[in-house]
Every structure is written in C-alpha cells, then in structure tokens.
Design a protein around this nucleic acid. Sequence first.
RNA 1: GAGCCGUUAGCUCAGAGGUAGAGCCCCUGCCUUUUAAGCAGGUUGUCGCGGGUUCGAUCCCCGCACGGCUCACCA
Length: 504
Amino acid sequence: MPETNDRREQRLEKLGRLHELGIDPYPPRAEHSHTVAQALAAFDANASQPTQVTVVGRLVSLRVMGGSTFCHIADGTGRIQLYLRRDAVGQEDYENFRRLIDLGDHVWATGTLFQTRSGEITVNTSAWRMLSKALRPLPDKWHGLRDVEMRYRQRYLDLIANPTARDIFITRSKIVSAIRHTLDGWGFMEVETPVLQPIYGGAAARPFTTHHNALDQTFYLRIADELYLKRLIVGGLDRVYEIGHNFRNEGISTHHNPEFTVVELYQAYADYEVIMRLVETLYSTVARTVLGTETLSYQGQEIQLTPPWRRVTMRDAILEASGIDIELVRTLPELCTAAESRGLSLASQPNWGKAVEKLFELTVEPSLVQPTFVIDYPVDISPLAKKKPGAPHLVERFEFFIGGLECGNAFTELNDPIDQRERFAAQVAAGAQGDSEAHPMDEDYIAAMEHGMPPTGGLGFGIDRMVMLYTDQVSIREVILFPALRDRGGDWQEAEDSPQEPRS
RNA sequence: GAGCCGUUAGCUCAGAGGUAGAGCCCCUGCCUUUUAAGCAGGUUGUCGCGGGUUCGAUCCCCGCACGGCUCACCA
C-alpha cells in the first residue's frame, strides 16, 4: 500500500491499482433506480419484502470495522447510509472497497433497504462500483471549510461542505425565477441587449474598456441596460425587462462586486408612481413565493415588506434627520455652510445636487431599515429622468432602501429629446471639469427619442442586494458564486502537485 | 486608496528569544449494526517572503506579499 504521505499521491496509487484490476475509475454512466431522497422515502417497515434500490452518490463518511463497513453517500437530494458486509458483497469486492475507496469518490451501490439498530434507513449493499475516483480530499469533516478565500475561490468545496452556502444559492435561484414569473405574469417581455457597447451610459459610473480586433474599435462593458431598453420602448415593446450583468470599474467591497446582476424594466404609459406600486408588490410577492412570508429577518431586525411602503421626499427626509431644509439653501455654498454648522463637510462636492445626495447618505440612509421610497431627486444627478412639474430643479425619481441598503432606482423617464440633449451637454461639461463618472453624449439615443418616446416609467434594482436581504447576509460575496478576487497567477495550487502526475 | 487584525502539519488551532506541539485527517494492525465508531502503533513542517538586531529569530524590529474586517467611492 501507499508509502507516501501525500494524499494525492496515495489516491493516484489507488487509481493505478484500479486500472490494474481492469476497473474503469471513470465509467460513463451511473444507472440508478432512486435518488437518495427517493430511496429514503421508499423504505417501508411493514413491507413483506425489503425494497430493492440502486443509488449513486459521493462518499462522505466511512467507518470500516473489519468484515463490515458503514458509509454515507450523498447526492443533490440528501445522504443515505450504506452497509457493506464481506459475506454479502464477496471477499474480493469487499477488499477492493476497503483498499481503494476514499472519501470524495463517487460510487454506485445496489441492495435492499433496512433499518439499523439505531433506526437509520440503510442500504444493505450486495454490490458496489466506482463511479469517479477523487484525487484530492474533501474539506475537513469537523470544521468544514472555514477559510473565506478558499470558500470563494473553490466554491464547489464550499457547496459540498457548507449547507448554508448551498441554501443561499438555491434561494437566489428561486428569487430570480420568482421575479421572472411575476413580471411575465404582468405582461412584461424579457429581452437581451448588448453587453458590449460603443458608448456606455445609463448610470454614473466608470466603465471597463475593451477592444474589438476585426472592427478595430473600442467597446465598453455596459454599466446599465437603460438606454437600449428605452430604445425598445420607442420601438413599441411596451413592457420590457432584462436580467443581466452590469460592469463597473470601481472599488470592491462587501457591498460591491465589479460585475453584478441587475433587473431593469420599462413600462410605457406609466410613471414613477406606478413603478413604486410595482416595486412593493414585486418584493412582497417574491418574498411570499420564496420564503413563505413577507417579513424578513435581517441582521436581527424585522423587516416588513407588505405594501404600502413608506414614502418620503428627499427634502423631508433630510429635514427630519438634519434640520436642514434643502429648499431654503439652493446654492452649493449656502448648503455647505448649513451642513458645516452641523459638523458635516460637503466641501468636496461639485454641485448642489451631489451635495444634497451626500448629505442624504450621511444623515438619512443608514436609518432606513423598513422599506422606504425616497422621492424627488435633484436634477443635476439625474440626467435621464423627467423634471417635476413646477419644480424644474427636481426630477420624478425615487430610490428605495431596505435594511439600510440602497436597493434600487427608478424614475419617470425623460422623453423630451431637446431636454435630453441639454442634460447630456451638462454631463459632458461636468466630465470636462473632471467628473470621471459623468455621462457621455449619446446622439444615437437622442435620435431614437426624437422619433417619439411615450411617457414611461423605468426601474433598476440589484439582485445581489435583494438576495443579501432575503438570506440575511452582510457580504455580497456570500451571494455571488464566484466573486471577483485578485488573480493568483493560475499556478497557486499546482505547487503541491506531483511532477510525475499522469496527464492524458 | 487609508486603518486594524491575521499568515505555524492536509484541516482547525496552541506555543516560547535556545531550533516546534495538540486534535482531526492520512498510513499500518485488530474489529461483521457503526454513525465525530473504537483500540494499538506510525508519518508529516524552508513556522507567508526579504532584510535587520542577536552567540542564536518561527518569536523582537523594518519592508513586502496575500487574506479578512472597517472606512472612503459606488448599486
């Protein structure tokens, strides 16, 4: 038997032994009669004949006791115990099992169901086969996989070892499915728009830049779907949505991943009031569908998603939290002075709108635990939203907040092409002043709008943050299967490999 | 980008200025209803990397790398 200590070496030796015995360690098929869950359900203590089952799965525990062995196998539906006796399996196959099997291997087993002395439903195995030999060991059976970096880099190990991780991603899948089902039921049509865009836009963010060789042209990875979806509204697709990734070349944190999943939707002949009702209904419906309740528990706080949600203007929210009435300090210097007198510095902000937004973030945002629509934003930070009648310094826009997290953004869409051109021009000017997140001019988009765009309500919200709320997670990395991490050069794991590794 | 903390066996972690430990894993033997199986025995480390102080550094000092958390920017 193996002389070496290296676990992978030992397993490679067992693999060689299997080949010598004429056993294929990676057979192509895994015929079975029951999933693990089905096998457990098929047991009947009162049956006159024991039930015959053939099951397949990964070996996750092993207790060899001389001529008798207990182990558990697991498939995606659960785990079941196998009982192998030398007498029942036969001398040769039993010894092969003892000598050649390791935790992590996938196996096939057939036998009859019975209950052990302690009552566990178990397969009294009459024959077994190797389905897939594992060359590396599973995570530690006691501690599981705790190393955070390894959990993210080798997510498959996390999924094997940590049921919580598995549950989060199952829930995530159900959330996305429930969103689709709900929107489809409301007459929305799912579409796909370009990820590679010649002009990025639809949000205030820095893009990733790439290059198309044949066209010899610069492309940007989209920072938002918005401008393409609104072209579809012009084209007469009255209710559209897209679920996809946006890419923003900015910092990475527990709340930010460079690529993240967003739902954007647009509804013709609607406004932001309609969208508010849509949001609260969608969030509560998804919660009921996926979690069975409209009440979330997030970081020890109870959050009630049942409509209607609280609505507050940005002006009132800031007034309440800081005592500053932004309508009374309508220039940047005045606002800075007012904030200064309350110990808040807005000095680095380039204009009144951004200063208002900053003031809001500092004084209001963390306190918005229960779902809240904050409405009516400054026009200079909202170049794609329609101005509020009678208050041209504001737009019909809202963001909504749950659990202190900013969850989404929506507005009555700007459909006046003359106004849109002026807004873009102001953004271009801001860009020239050094605002790296300013919106570029998009003539093609304005041309679409000049063909006539109906009054429209639009919405964007992040799936990742929604999943964080619904699964009670603080870090966005816990809800993204493979979060962005610094590259380790690709050979970081090969160092432990044996040089004589057979590569075929 | 800034601050704090961390990096010791395959895993989870202790450790002291004098050359490294525990439990589990793994290996060998016994064991035909076990389930963190048990019993007996055994192997495993450039103590993250590079300098410095010292007779001697894994331990003290400096720098670097990587990671985690917090803050800043952002969804």
